[in-house]
Amino acid sequence: MKKNLHKILKYLFNITFFLFFVVVTLLGITLFLHHKPTWRLSSEVTKEEKSTEQENRVAVDGKDIKTGLLDDKGIEVVIFNCTRCHSAKLITQNRANRQGWLAMIRWMQSSQNLWDLGENEKIILDYLEKNYAPEKQGRRKNLSNIEWYKLD
């Protein structure tokens, strides 16, 4: 009887210890993945991290909620490669043709530590060219978005 109790206690102790170990490890991994320092370059980022990013995306009114980028083919690759140093606001503010976008990418590669995008470059350029192309406009636009108010 006593021996059995001792065995059971030891067993329980082992299980508790094991569970504790598992929880701590999982917590550690989660925190590590969540932290994501920018200086971990693209090559160091795991496939899993990339797919989590895709699954967690929510789009409302055709826009990705977190980044404000237009929801379209290639957006995951853009988010993945283009929002690690600065926010996507730098993209959504800008308009350019394909050549212009490529020039910005080349500038970031030559002077701002942007990595070689490999085959993703085409996906990114297709996305940017389609969604953030220049609008036709003259030498000066009409005033717009005026919020009229009474002044006396």
Binding site: N94, A96, G100, P134, Q137, K141
Partner: peptide
């Protein structure tokens, strides 16, 4: 923000 073609950077 007024330049045409658009110029790069914060608008």
């Amino acid at each position: 923000s007024e330049f045409n073609p658009p110029a790069k950077g914060n608008q």
